[in-house]
Amino acid sequence: MSRVAYVNGTYRPHGQAVVHIEDRGFQFADGVYEVWGVFGGRLADFDGHMTRLHRSLNELRIPIPMTREALKQVLNETIRRNRVQNGIVYLQVTRGTAPRDHAFPQDTAPSVVVTAKRVDTAKGEAMAARGAAGVTQPDIRWGRCDIKTVGLLPNVLAKQAARESGAYECLMYDEMGLITEGSSTNAWIVDENGKLRTRDTQANILKGVTRTQLLDIIAEEGVELDERPFSVEEAKKAREVFVTAASTFVMPLVSLDGVRIGDGKPGPVATRLRAAYLEQADRDAV
């Protein structure tokens, strides 16, 4: 847990860090968030997350609360005060505090919250080495999943379904039975023909920053990629299934709804891409 949090210009002990009860993030989920991985006390994929943050804010017409450099200083100071070497730092920006009304308030300053916490990297590496379980269920989210909004109740329900099944992640599928993404991840397969596939981000899919970085690595390594949807059945017949996110990196799934994927072990593609991503993220962290 974060020991110190940044809230609207001040650093406070975690238990004393609060926002107003009429903050629109609390009442309407009227806000966005980003999560950076922290490697050796440094921010991974800083520019990618900042670009997506600005896009999300612009799509919701929430003012950008501070410059990129100022925000970077806040993120790094929160990391420093929490003594995080390896972990995550979380940023949330809402439209701010105003008397409750659905329409946008006038002249309201955005609320900014930052927390940071350590992550047990050994635990994550152990899971990646053995592979994790996944489940599937229908995607019931709203029509603008390209915006990284704090309105995550359908994702929460999907993640809870995974936990109650003893699984790590829930892959959601649309009305045609095609997987969209995970509850907190992007989804990938190496299909039964050996082709690496992931759904394109034009179809109401969040443009994952880890996903984007992995696309660059894939291109550099000359791996053929097909940005094309795949069904639940195709995933279950695939040689490999894996998911990606800032806190997950590249995580192999070795079963889906109880069906074994491939030989039931992490595959060579996911293992190779995880190693390449971690190496690059650590090298380029700022």
Results as ranks from 00 to 15, higher is better:
Arg61Lys: 14
Val32Leu: 05
Val243Gly: 04
Ala129Gly: 01
Ala132Asn: 05
Arg163Cys: 02
Arg52Pro: 06
Gly15Val: 07
Leu57Phe: 03
Tyr90Arg: 09
Ser183His: 05
Ala161Trp: 01
Ser255Thr: 15
Ala245Arg: 07
Glu59Tyr: 09
Ile217Arg: 09
Pro63His: 13
Asp257His: 03
Ile189Gln: 01
Thr198Ala: 05
Lys195Val: 15
Gly267Tyr: 09
Gly31Lys: 06
Lys195Thr: 14
Glu59Trp: 02
Trp36Leu: 04
Tyr90Gln: 07
Gln160Trp: 06
Gly131Pro: 04
Met176Asn: 13
Val232Arg: 00
Ala158Gln: 01
Ala238Ile: 11
Ala126Phe: 03
Thr10Gly: 05
Met50Ser: 11
Ala17His: 03
Ile261Val: 12
Val19Pro: 10
Thr201Phe: 15
Lys236Gln: 08
Cys170Trp: 01
Ile147Leu: 04
Asp146Gln: 11
His102Glu: 04
Ala103Ile: 08
Gln16His: 09
Ala122Ile: 01
Val114Tyr: 07
Asp200Phe: 13
Pro138Glu: 03
Arg83Leu: 05
Trp188Cys: 09
Asp216Ile: 05
Leu57Pro: 02
Val32Asn: 06
Lys207Met: 14
Met50Ala: 13
Gln73Asp: 15
Arg199Asp: 02
Val32Ser: 05
Gly166Met: 11
Val232Trp: 00
Ala219Gln: 13
Pro268Ala: 05
Pro252Gly: 09
Arg52Phe: 00
Arg42Lys: 13
Asn155Gly: 10
His49Thr: 01
Ser183Phe: 05
Lys117Asn: 07
Ile261Gln: 04
Ala276Gln: 10
Met66Cys: 11
Gln16Gly: 11
Lys72Asp: 11
Arg211Ser: 07
Arg130His: 10
